[in-house]
């Protein structure tokens, strides 16, 4: 269970104070697939960074399975990111001179998993995201956008995180590949019982998630919809 309590993040811009996240509160059930939509600059990515402990809130708290992130030292936050969070970025953010397998193995290496075990799991994850086995040893800068995003998703799953945060995961992909990626995230959420939160400005993509939140002027509202994805 992820609980977000009255989260505020503000910046100074000259004499002005900007609050991209202004008193946001919500809860995410374990194994759910949710989305946050909003216009560019509405604070979606800032909220995602706060949830992923990449940034610290001005006030408020994020509680993951009963553990509060507020006040945790940097070392503990790094450990939290390594153990509990998986990131999927719009630009993929893979290490270009490493192979697909090596990229997936990286978070496991940081977690201290032995080489043989992490190699086995990396290959399994790449198979789960349906990356052609021939491309496992290939350097990621020689893969297509869709393939790179699959590798990024496999990397996000490497340490079996509690929460996967996907920032515009289909933003750099064509429509068909984007749909495949969303289907993949959906199935992973089901199969791994992993909580997934997708940030997007693509309404059609958001329609495919269980819950959809709208972020507007720093405040979050949940859209009420009929039906379920499952």
């Amino acid at each position: 269970m992820i609980e977000v309590k009255d989260l505020v993040r503000q910046f100074k811009s000259g004499d002005r104070t900007i609050k991209p996240v202004n008193g946001v509160s919500f809860e995410l059930e374990k194994g759910s697939l949710s989305s946050i939509v909003g216009k560019s600059g509405s604070g979606k990515s800032t909220l995602l960074s706060l949830l992923g402990a990449l940034d610290k809130p001005t006030s408020g708290d994020v509680v993951v399975d009963g553990v509060s992130l507020a006040g945790l030292p940097d070392g503990k936050l790094t450990e939290y990111r390594r153990r509990d969070i998986g990131f999927v970025f719009q630009q993929f953010n893979l290490i270009p001179n490493l192979s697909a397998v090596d990229n997936v193995m990286l978070p496991m290496e940081f977690a201290g998993i032995r080489k043989a075990a992490r190699l086995k799991r990396a290959k399994e994850l790449l198979e789960q995201v349906q990356l052609d086995p021939e491309k496992h040893p290939r350097r990621t800068n020689r893969l297509s956008g869709g393939e790179q995003q699959r590798v990024a998703i496999a990397r996000a799953l490497a340490n079996e995180p509690k929460l996967i945060l996907a920032d515009e995961p289909t933003g750099n992909l064509d429509e068909q590949t984007g749909e495949h990626i969303i289907e993949l995230l959906s199935s992973l959420s089901r199969d791994h019982n992993t909580t997934i939160l997708v940030v997007t400005h693509d309404r059609s993509l958001a329609q495919k998630t269980e819950r959809c939140f709208r972020l507007q002027q720093g405040r979050l509202t949940e859209e009420v919809r009929s039906g379920s994805r499952r």
Partner: peptide
């Protein structure tokens, strides 16, 4: 930044 985001210690 990416390495840090995925949990690499300093």
């Amino acid at each position: 930044g990416v390495l840090k985001a995925i949990g690499a210690p300093n």
